[in-house]
């Protein structure tokens, strides 16, 4: 089942989007001078699809503190989400087995 488990964190960042959903194949991660965020250095993530040209790029530039907060949020969301989905999956499997046993009877 789907859940509403969400980790929320405040960030200092700039982002660059595209108008439509695009497939992304590479994430380049680096800490350097940003193009847009008003920071000396930023943790920059370029999500790219190099086969679609340089404009196929979703980019974020985060302060170092925001980037660390994001890492924690990602880890927390994965841990909580995976645990929730695992237990839901076990319940489903158990329910399916019970149904099969009932059908046999």
């Amino acid at each position: 089942m789907c859940s509403w488990i969400t980790e929320k964190t405040g960030i200092v960042a700039h982002g660059k989007g595209v108008s439509e959903w695009i497939s992304l194949r590479t994430a380049n991660v680096y800490y350097d001078h940003p193009a847009s965020a008003p920071l000396d250095h930023a943790l920059i993530i370029d999500f790219l699809n190099e086969t679609e040209g340089p404009g196929a790029r979703v980019a974020v530039e985060l302060s170092a503190e925001s980037a660390r907060a994001l890492v924690r949020a990602i880890e927390a969301a994965l841990a909580a989400g995976e645990q929730c989905h695992e237990s839901t999956s076990r319940t489903h499997t158990k329910e399916r087995k019970t149904e099969t046993a009932d059908e046999r009877r």
Binding site: K16, Y30, E50, P54, R57
Partner: peptide
């Protein structure tokens, strides 16, 4: 050489 495109996209492409 990574263009045409926006200057910041081309900088990212050069890095990539």
């Amino acid at each position: 050489r990574h263009g045409p495109g926006r200057w910041d996209d081309l900088a990212a492409a050069a890095r990539a």
